[in-house]
């Protein structure tokens, strides 16, 4: 087995790197898009109370649908390739980001908001200088959850032709090649793990005050 894996890397290192970068790229793009949608949507939900129920219910329902189902449901609508896969991943990643943004913005203690206002911050300044910075830890946690979910689900995206480590895994399943399964599976696991560590370090660096 060990030899098989060594052989694989000797023969296919270029192809492996392509799959790895494909996987990384689609995950990163989906995460960024999910943040760009989820955080403003969360802000709107807290800012305009009426929106909160419908928006979080809608994304809550999306969350119940299994990732593979979303991916396959994209097929008839958008066809195959990286774009429909990315859209499915984005839909999957929005709920944790949205919910954590809402929770983070809402859980800022009222007395801090009152102090901020009482000191003469404008409504906008209260959002930018107090509410968002204090919600950031939870937003980052949401992003971490989303990143791990995306990296895992992006494996399934190979099913609709998006490439990535899923290609290797599905080939491994088709050919009963344990070595390919192992390489693919471990790579995805390592990517998830690295994403987790990355966010952990990011928190340590930008949330210095949390250390005390």
């Amino acid at each position: 087995m060990y030899h098989l894996i060594i052989d694989y890397f000797q023969m296919n290192s270029g192809r492996f790197l392509t799959m790895l970068t494909d996987h990384f790229r689609i995950s990163l793009c989906s995460l960024l898009a999910a943040v760009l949608i989820g955080v403003p949507a969360g802000f709107c939900c807290v800012r305009f109370h009426v929106l909160q129920k419908p928006v979080s219910t809608a994304f809550g329902i999306l969350r119940i649908i299994p990732s593979l189902a979303i991916l396959l449901l994209m097929l008839p609508v958008l066809g195959t390739g990286a774009v429909p896969a990315a859209i499915a991943l984005i839909l999957l990643a929005i709920p944790p980001i949205l919910e954590n943004t809402i929770a983070g913005l809402r859980d800022v203690p009222p007395f801090l908001l009152e102090t901020a206002g009482g000191m003469g911050m404008t409504g906008r300044q209260v959002w930018m200088r107090v509410r968002f910075p204090l919600a950031l830890p939870l937003i980052l946690t949401g992003m971490k959850t989303a990143a791990v979910e995306i990296i895992a689900s992006a494996t399934l995206a190979a099913r609709i032709g998006a490439g990535g480590m899923g290609d290797l895994i599905f080939t491994g399943i088709g050919l009963f090649r344990t070595d390919l399964l192992l390489i693919g599976g471990i790579s995805v696991a390592l990517m998830s793990f690295s994403a987790g560590i990355f966010f952990h370090l990011l928190e340590k660096i930008i949330l210095k005050y949390k250390r005390f």
């Binding site: 901020a116 000191m119 003469g120 204090l134 949330l207 005050y209």
Partner: peptide, 21 residues
């Protein structure tokens, strides 16, 4: 009101220091 508040000092029981600053 914003200008008024900047001219008045305000202290509360919970102190309300911003923890992230």
């Amino acid at each position: 009101p914003v200008k008024l508040r900047r001219r008045i000092g305000y202290v509360i029981q919970q102190i309300g220091l911003f923890p992230h600053m």
